[in-house]
Amino acid sequence: MDLTLAENFYRQMLLIRRFEEKCVEMYSKEKIRGFLHLTIGEEAVGVGVMHALTPEDAILATYREHGQALARGIHPNRIMAEMYGKVEGCSRGRGGSMHLFDAATRFYGGSAIVAGALPVAVGMALADKMMKRKRVTVCFFGDGAVAEGEFHESLNLAALWHLPILFVCENNRYAMGTAIEFSHSETNLAKKASCYRIESHQVDGMDVEAVAEAAQNAAESIRAGKGPVFLECLTYRFRAHSMFDAELYRSKSEVEEWKKKDPLLLLYQRYPSIDIDKYESEAAYIINEAVNFADNGTWEPIEDLTRFVYTQEAAQ
């Protein structure tokens, strides 16, 4: 892999990390409220997968989706404004952190029902197949989702109907506070997926290059009409589940151990000529702009509260 691509990965992952750190700051200043789930530690998954996609592909993500949204190219200003609940936000302030949407980049949200987006992703891929479009639908979800019925129903349908869909499991080892060994009889989740006759791989989710390569291969295979692919990205969440989590369920030493595999650190060690300072100051500038944009944003008038419940009213 060339340095430029590595720099680009580094730049994106750094922006995600600094952006989320700023979100925490804004949360403590009560500019951001509700749930705030950070992806810090897991940046390589979203960045690596997005690299393999074209603008025509569709993305469905979870409530921990800031990283994917940024990597997909939703403007940081609109994401920050959404966190603030402003009308300039990418969901007009109706979604917040967990529900980022953007039609322009075909980003179909942030779903906060674990495994709830998988059936929808299956349907999107079904539509592409029926309309003979060469698109890929990517669905992100966590290890927790693999215990849900909707996961199994959806993988069965995707395989049965040979759909152009990429399932990306971000296995961060915890379903909120419940460790994977307390949730799954078989903790190798790729193995579970392969039971549905889906091509399944485990990938080092801390290594952005490994994720990008696996996603690239998967996307090519899907575009070639070879059916769904399942990637289990082994990763780790460095921060708490949300802002309300005292982290009683895991040890500090475990977290420290995983931090040695920090995706930013790993990439830098591989490409020590990456100009970190340059990307730090660039990220700082972008994030500062985003905060200013959100601070200067406007609140949707209360009269518009019931808009968008039905399309007819939305048009008015």
Partner: peptide
């Protein structure tokens, strides 16, 4: 014909509707 997967095929209807079909 779908398998007995009410949640998945109803959700698939939603996805297909989002992606240009009229399921």
């Amino acid at each position: 014909d779908t398998p007995l997967s009410e949640s998945a095929f109803t959700g698939a209807g939603i996805g297909a509707a989002l992606n240009g079909m009229r399921p």
